[in-house]
């Protein structure tokens, strides 16, 4: 057995690749394809049983009804806002970690940024529910200034999601900046470039793939989120809520399947667009 494998590297490759490909290539991709097919079927409005008759009605509804257009745009804008906020916040933190902090402080900062990643997602969303509550710390801080907490709504949702995904942006940025040798920055300064020019022509090209890698997470995670919205978003709905409600309470799996093609298409276009930047190797 071992000898046969030794003489046939292709057989070795096949045996290694077979099981993971059966799982991801056949089962998982198959499930995604089946989802698309289900979107072309209908559900019996009364029992929720799926009827295998081909129709484009689900897609027509998704694209023509005002509600779903509003929700899609809201979800997309939230994802963009979360990504921009995270990138803007992560840059100074990553720059400080990589280029200013001492090696010891650097190690501690990495741990400090990593630790909350291990804390439960649900717990963190829940923590912000406490922060934004009517008699929580934000209301307490804002009160002396005559302000009040923004309460549960879109603002709270964006803040909470930006908070949740921030480490996914800081870590690739930090890794990118860390790899950038100081001598390169000094050379740029010696050759007469000011801070702004160096930032644009030396730092940014290194940072770009890192931001893209981070944004894949911030974007995808925001597009698919519906739990954080339920916890801090008040009555606001995202695409994820529409999908969830149609599957579990609305009993309309085909329609939910049609809605879920929206984030899939967005993410596939995004992944295809960023493949050239080499960001996928940084994940």
């Amino acid at each position: 057995m071992s000898g046969v494998l030794h003489r046939h590297p292709r057989l070795r490759l096949g045996l290694l690749l077979g099981p993971p490909m059966l799982w991801l290539g056949v089962a998982y991709l198959g499930a995604l394809a089946a989802l698309f097919i289900t979107a072309l079927w209908t559900a019996d409005g009364f029992t929720g049983n799926i009827q295998r008759e081909w129709t484009l009605d689900n897609f027509k509804d998704v694209f023509s009804l005002e509600v779903y257009r509003t929700i899609t745009i809201r979800t997309l804008l939230t994802a963009v806002a979360v990504t921009v906020i995270d990138a803007a916040l992560a840059f100074p933190v990553a720059l400080y970690m990589a280029k200013v902090a001492s090696p010891r402080a650097q190690r501690l900062l990495v741990i400090a940024i990593l630790t909350p990643l291990w804390a439960s997602y649900l717990v963190k969303a829940y923590a912000w529910r406490g922060m934004f509550s009517a008699d929580g710390p934000i209301a307490w801080l804002a009160d002396p200034f005559g302000l009040s907490t923004p309460g549960y709504g879109l603002v709270a949702t964006v803040v909470t999601l930006a908070y949740l995904w921030l480490p996914y942006m800081i870590l690739p940025m930090y890794a990118g900046l860390e790899r950038l040798p100081n001598s390169l920055l000094e050379a740029s300064a010696d050759l007469g470039a000011g801070a702004r020019v160096t930032l644009r022509r030396v730092v940014l090209p290194v940072l770009f793939p890192a931001v893209v890698a981070g944004s894949i997470f911030t974007f995808s995670l925001t597009l698919g989120d519906y739990i954080a919205v339920k916890i801090v978003g008040g009555t606001n709905q995202m695409l994820g809520n529409v999908i969830y409600d149609n599957v579990l309470t609305g009993n309309n799996l085909p329609f939910a399947a049609a809605v879920s093609t929206i984030p899939v298409v967005i993410m596939l276009v995004y992944l295809a667009a960023v493949r050239r930047t080499g960001a996928l190797d940084n994940l």
Binding site: L17, P20, M21, L24, G25, A27, Y28, L29, G30, A31, L32, A34, L35, T38, I50, I216, S220, L221, L223, G224, D225, Y226, L239, G240, I243, Y244, V247, L253, A256, A257, S260, P263, V264, M267, L271, L280, L283
Partner: peptide, 27 residues
Amino acid sequence: VSLLIILPIALPGVVTGIALANAFTTM
């Protein structure tokens, strides 16, 4: 293949969830 491996985390969780649930129950 490498794209396929990252796909379950690159795609939003709801999509993976509904795709698998649909495959299990209706397919």
